[in-house]
Design a protein around this nucleic acid. Sequence first.
DNA 1: CTTGACACATAGGGATTCTATGGATATAAG
DNA 2: CTTATATCCATAGAATCCCTATGTGTCAAG
Lengths: 111, 111
Amino acid sequence: MEQGKAEVLKGTLDMLILKVVALGPIHGYAISQRIQQISKDLFQVPEGSLYPALHRLEDRGWLQAKWEETETGRDAKFYSLTRAGKKRLSAELVNWERLSEAMALILSAAE
Amino acid sequence: MEQGKAEVLKGTLDMLILKVVALGPIHGYAISQRIQQISKDLFQVPEGSLYPALHRLEDRGWLQAKWEETETGRDAKFYSLTRAGKKRLSAELVNWERLSEAMALILSAAE
DNA sequence: CTTGACACATAGGGATTCTATGGATATAAG
DNA sequence: CTTATATCCATAGAATCCCTATGTGTCAAG
């Protein structure tokens, strides 16, 4: 509720991760930074939320990971979307549209 | 994810209830129907979610309740916003704006 | 007289996320 | 050199929020 940092809306973290990974292979730590950056510093994704989510998405077959080196020579787990992950993302995007439109209907309702 | 009924976005139920109550005094059962109706039948609010939420909002001082008769002669608990509830709602609306804009930023991000 | 709508309520559990903590490596600061 | 900061991964435990399932009672319709 405060001005400044905020948590991601519950239930949307998976979709946000899938979307960022869809922009190109990327490792976990960078995903969280990217979300923060694109959201203009609004959303924080703590590592205790991020990594369990990544494992969940991998377990469900939406992400695949392989260890590679970053530009700076560090080892990092790079994630990319599977075919199922792409389908899942697109379904989640469609669903988000419906839900946020319904939200708008209610929040703009007048007596 | 399916077409048809959906759950409310997690974390938004309190705001939706406050908003509907802000339209005028209304009892619990009708709140859930109203949310469903305004959302064009998308959102379902099961009673097991609704009533605990109403009690929570009352405990926090955002809603006040009194027993009255409905048009059809039944007893029902009519809720209205307290002053604190109005402030809370308006804060939640502002916050929702910020969050959904940040969501849009990420979901429309291109490489 | 039984089914369905109305109206309230709670217990118990599931899913998701957070806080707290841990480890390891690189780089910059002092 | 040593310390702090940033990078990168990970898990345990708790908190939050919501749902399913169940229960009570009333009223109207058939």
